[in-house]
């Protein structure tokens, strides 16, 4: 009697100790990404706008019905008609063509600036957060100093000092944007580095460099992607603002901001001159924000299972 009981116990014990486990079905990461990302209408809208934007920027010369730079004083301030779909400005340049060429400026400034600012800002923030002490002191105090000035004012002063032109606009906006990225990255690093897996990683002999860039950075990416897409919107707005104020893209270059500026004197007679670029800015900024949201939801491993 007792023997059978002991026997059963032994069997159960062996079964337990051998740890027979069943693997759950494997879900493809890519499939989940597609599902979460493409499922939502607003994200799809953002994506479509984004694709159209890229297409427009690349094929601007083919798409533009007229030369965006050549004025024709005889056709100045023409209201929209079949030849000039959105009318012409004071110098007789086709608004639609300038709008199309303006996408190049907007995208170039947006992407290049955000790439520069995010790279420098993230590295600085990562270093400050990871090493702490003197490194953090020096980096973050410099960032704080820059942050004392409102973003646009600082960019304005820099752009004014450097002079106009697309290159200087990019430099000015990048420098103004770095502290924002550094700040967020610093905070993220401080919290991520306290995780058990960082200690586990250190216990496996990983170097500081490896921990910073292979383990902390990927964990900060979901937040960073959202910040980057949001900043893309902000940047396009900021570039427009600088151009509007006349220290951004210099004439005859086509930029939405300067188009609004050129047009606002005729707001009552030819409102489309300002409204068209204004609407373009609005739609693009909105689209970027939607994409940012969608990307975060689709990429964040911590949201897996929830979405």
């Amino acid at each position: 009697m007792t023997d059978t009981i002991t026997d059963t116990m032994k069997k159960t014990e062996n079964k337990i100790l051998s740890g027979e486990s069943e693997a759950p079905p494997v879900v493809s990461e890519w499939r989940r990404f597609r599902r979460v990302f493409f499922q939502r209408k607003l994200v799809m809208f953002g994506l479509i706008v984004f694709v159209i934007l890229i297409f427009t920027a690349v094929f601007a010369p083919l798409l533009a019905p007229h030369d965006p730079y050549r004025g024709d004083l005889a056709n100045s301030l023409v209201p929209p008609n079949s030849d000039f779909l959105l009318g012409t400005d004071i110098q007789g340049r086709d608004t639609l063509s300038r709008l199309i060429y303006g996408t190049r400026t907007a995208l170039l400034v947006g992407f290049v600036t955000v790439a520069i600012a995010a790279t420098i800002g993230n590295v600085l923030g990562l270093m400050a957060g990871f090493f702490g002490k003197a490194v953090a002191m020096i980096i973050m105090r410099i960032m704080d100093t820059v942050m004392c000035f409102p973003f646009l004012i600082f960019a304005l002063v820099l752009a004014a000092v450097l002079g106009g032109g697309i290159q200087n606009v990019i430099i000015a906006l990048s420098i103004s944007l770095i502290p924002g990225f550094a700040r967020v990255m610093n905070g993220l690093t401080l919290s991520i580095k306290e995780n058990d897996y960082i200690l586990a990683e250190r216990s496996m002999g990983a170097s500081n460099f490896r921990i910073m860039f292979k383990h902390i950075l990927p964990n900060a990416m979901p937040t960073m992607i959202v910040l980057i897409t949001l900043q893309l919107g902000t940047l396009i707005l900021a570039e427009a603002a600088l151009s509007f104020l006349g220290i951004g893209i210099q004439p005859p270059g086509a930029a939405w901001g300067s188009m609004i500026n050129d047009g606002y004197r005729f707001l009552l007679t030819n409102p489309i001159l300002s409204f068209a670029p204004g609407l373009a800015i609005m739609i693009v900024v909105f689209a970027f924000n939607m994409i940012g949201d969608g990307l975060r939801d689709a990429l964040d491993p911590r949201l897996r299972g929830l979405l």
């Binding site: 990683e201 250190r202 002999g205």
Partner: peptide
């Protein structure tokens, strides 16, 4: 570390990098 002496921690839920 890792090569000659390795370590396993208490919390399996947080000891692996989620990303």
């Amino acid at each position: 570390r890792g090569g000659k002496i390795a370590m396993i921690f208490q919390e399996p839920m947080t000891s692996l990098n989620p990303t």
